[in-house]
Amino acid sequence: MQPIRNVAIVGAGLVGSGWAIVFARSGATVRVYDAEASIRASVLDRIRDSLADMREVGLVDDVDAIAGRITVADTLGDAVSDADYIQESVFERVDVKTAISLAIDAAMRPDAIVGSSSSGIPASAFTEGCVHRSRFLVSHPVNPPHLVPVVELVPAPWTDPAIVPFLRTEMARFGQVPVVVNREIAGFILNRLQGALLNEAWALFEEGYASAADIDATVAHGLGLRWSFMGPFETIDLNAPGGVADYAQRLGPLYHSVAQDRTEPKPWSEGLVGKVAAERREALPGESLADRRAWRDGRLMRLVAHKQAQKD
C-alpha cells in the first residue's frame, strides 16, 4: 500500500474539521464533505480559526499553507472518489452510519481505506453490506483530534489484516498516537476506561459522598496530572517500591473490595442527571458553554505544546 496523500473527510462537524487539520498539517490534500450546506459553508472559517489559535502556541507555523490544502466538496462523490483514505465522522447511530458507509462504498476507489470515527459502535454493525467491507474499520479519535492525538484502530472481523499495521504507521506519520484494539468490543478501550470512571463518579455523587465539583477536582488536580503523561499501568508501576507486582500485592485487595461495591451498576437516571446538570449550570451557565470549550481547547494546545517540547 502506498502512503496516504489524498484524504476525504465525510462529516465536517467538530470531529471532522479536527481530522482535516490532522491530515492537512502533515501535507496531505484534504477534501471535506458534509450533507448540511450550512456546515460546508462555515467549515473552512472554523478550521482557519483553529489553526490561528494553534499558531499562537507554536503548534503550527503557516496557517495559509495548511488551510490551502483543504477544500470543500459539494457532493460525497467529489470528496471520496480520488481519496486514498476516507475518514467518516457522521452521527453516532447505526442506521446513519450504515447509510453513509453504503454511500461511501459505492463511490470510493476499491483500494481506498475507510476509517469511522465511531465512539463505541463496532464497524461490523454498519459495514457488513458494503461491497468493499474489507477496506473498512474504526479509527476512533478523541475530540478534538487535532489536539488529542490518540486514535483507536478497531478492525471488523472482515477487515483486511494488512490494513491495521499500515494505518498504524500512517497515523503515526500524521502525528497521531495510534493504538490497536485486537478485536471488536463495544466502547473500545478509551470509552470503556472513561466509562468506568464516569460510572463511579455518578455513583459517588448520587450517594452523597461529594459534590460534582469536588469529584471533578479529584481528577483534574489529582489523577489527571499523572494521566496526562502516563497510563494506569505505568502509574502504579512507579507508585510502589517494587513496581507493579509490589503495588498489586499491597493494594490489589483494596481495589477488589471496591469493585465488589459496584456489582449491580445503575443507569444514569433522569433525576440524577438533573441534579448534576443543575450544579454544572450554576457553575457554568449554558450560554457560556461555547466559551468554556474554547478555553478547554486553549489549555489543551498549551499542554500539547509543552509535551512536544519535552523529551521522554
Results as ranks from 00 to 15, higher is better:
M1N: 06
M1Q: 08
R5I: 08
V7H: 01
A8W: 01
G13I: 00
L14H: 00
V15E: 00
G18V: 04
V22N: 02
V22K: 00
R25I: 15
A28F: 11
V32L: 06
Y33E: 05
E36R: 00
S38V: 05
A41K: 06
R48I: 09
A52L: 14
E56H: 03
E56D: 13
V57T: 15
G58T: 11
D62W: 11
D64A: 15
I66R: 06
I66F: 13
A67K: 08
V72L: 05
V72W: 01
V72H: 01
V72Q: 02
A73M: 08
A73T: 08
T75H: 06
S81M: 12
D82Y: 02
A83Y: 11
D84C: 04
Y85Q: 01
I86T: 12
I86D: 12
Q87C: 05
S89F: 00
F91C: 00
F91K: 01
V94N: 03
V96S: 07
I100H: 01
S101Y: 12
S101C: 13
D105S: 09
P110D: 11
P110Q: 10
I113L: 15
V114T: 10
S116Q: 07
G120E: 07
G120H: 04
G120C: 09
I121N: 04
P122A: 09
S124H: 11
F126R: 04
C130E: 12
C130F: 06
L137S: 04
V138K: 00
V138H: 01
S139V: 10
P141T: 02
H146C: 01
L147C: 03
L147P: 04
V154W: 08
V154P: 09
P155I: 14
A156M: 14
T159H: 11
D160A: 13
D160T: 13
P161A: 10
P161Q: 09
V164Q: 09
E170D: 13
V177L: 08
P178H: 04
V179F: 00
V180R: 00
V180H: 02
V180W: 03
R183Y: 07
E184I: 09
G187S: 05
G187K: 01
Q194T: 00
G195N: 07
G195E: 09
E200G: 07
E200P: 12
F205D: 07
E207L: 14
A210K: 03
A213D: 14
D214C: 07
D214S: 09
A217E: 08
T218M: 14
G222T: 08
L223P: 01
G224Y: 03
P232W: 02
F233R: 07
L238K: 10
A240R: 06
A240I: 13
A245I: 15
R250Y: 06
L251E: 07
P253Y: 12
L254N: 08
H256R: 13
V258H: 10
Q260S: 12
Q260G: 11
D261I: 06
R262P: 03
T263N: 12
T263W: 12
P265M: 06
W268V: 12
S269I: 05
S269L: 12
G271M: 08
L272A: 07
L272C: 03
R280Y: 13
E282F: 13
G286R: 09
E287W: 10
S288H: 14
L289C: 07
R292E: 15
G298Q: 11
G298S: 15
M301P: 01
R302S: 10
R302L: 07
H306D: 11
K307Q: 15
K307E: 15
